[in-house]
């Protein structure tokens, strides 16, 4: 199934001008955005000698909200790590903001305007909340106080607890610390690896709302999610990944409505 060419595979040759308008969440057609902020083509990547991804194509437009879903072991997280230079690059191209970034190291990529929130262990537990956020801006000469205040405005609980050790906070609050850290550089693209993992069910909704707001404020998001239905409902476009290759791509709503996708990947 993974080898089949999906009719809506992004080619960047959209016939409809409006497709570039990423604010149009209800856009019935789902080709790649007119101008991609992130453009992944024929990407092969893996760990050491082990190849995980094969010919993966993926686009994220400026300010767009894209999710990658798929079964366990499909290579969802690997896509994200590959964009951020955390895997072994084996071929293809990754272009961000008209600049090739494949083969660069994470500490170089972060300067380009991409921030990454890993799935697990995404905070510095013995550092205070504020120190965690300060570390997010390490590459700057000084901690930008306005950004810090922005993050505090976005997550007020963090300001209340800025001196508390991040490791002593609840799961939901830790996730806020992790996102806050990533937002300190005001990235153009935020990579979120399974942000709902390990959260209590009643906190998951809240977390997705927060991601919506980050996206509403203009930050493009590439998210990998286990919670596929909710993720597809929220996003502009979704990719279904299987066995390290592109499966389907469409708007989130259309993927949700697709009988084949539902049966194979979303449990009916």
């Amino acid at each position: 199934m993974s080898e089949q060419e999906t009719p809506t595979e992004p080619t960047g040759e959209s016939t409809d001008e409006e497709h570039g308008d990423v604010s149009a969440k209800t856009d019935p057609l789902a080709a790649a955005p007119e101008e991609s902020l992130l453009e992944v083509r024929d990407l092969d990547a893996g760990y050491g000698d082990l190849q995980i991804l094969e010919d993966v194509d993926l686009d994220v437009g400026d300010g767009e909200y894209v999710t990658v879903v798929g079964p366990n072991g499909a290579g969802k997280s690997t896509v994200m790590k590959s964009v951020f230079g955390l895997t072994t690059y084996m071929g293809g191209t990754v272009v961000f903001d008209e600049e090739e970034i494949h083969g660069l190291r994470p500490e170089e990529i972060i300067y380009k305007g991409i921030s990454y929130v890993p799935q697990n262990d995404n905070i510095f537990p013995t550092l205070s909340v504020q120190e965690n956020l300060e570390m997010g801006a390490y590459i700057l000469d000084e901690v930008p106080q306005d950004r810090l205040q922005d993050v505090y405005d976005r997550f007020p609980i963090l300001e209340d607890r800025k001196s508390q050790k991040a490791g002593s906070m609840s799961g939901g609050q830790r996730q806020m610390v992790a996102m806050g850290r990533a937002l300190m550089l005001d990235p153009d693209l935020l990579l979120l690896d399974e942000p709902s993992a390990g959260l209590a069910p009643d906190l998951v909704e809240e977390m997705f709302d927060r991601i919506d707001r980050i996206n509403d404020d203009g930050t493009a998001i590439l998210m990998v999610e286990q919670n596929a239905k909710e993720a597809l409902r929220r996003c502009d476009r979704g990719y279904v990944l299987a066995q390290g290759q592109n499966g389907y791509v469409d708007t989130g709503d259309r993927l949700l409505a697709d009988e084949e996708v539902r049966q194979q990947f979303l449990g009916g």
């Binding site: 994470p106 972060i110 262990d121 537990p125 570390m135 390490y138 850290r181």
Partner: peptide, 9 residues
């Protein structure tokens, strides 16, 4: 957290 330090720049 070394891995996180790396992705934090």
């Amino acid at each position: 957290n070394k891995d996180l330090a790396l992705v934090t720049g």
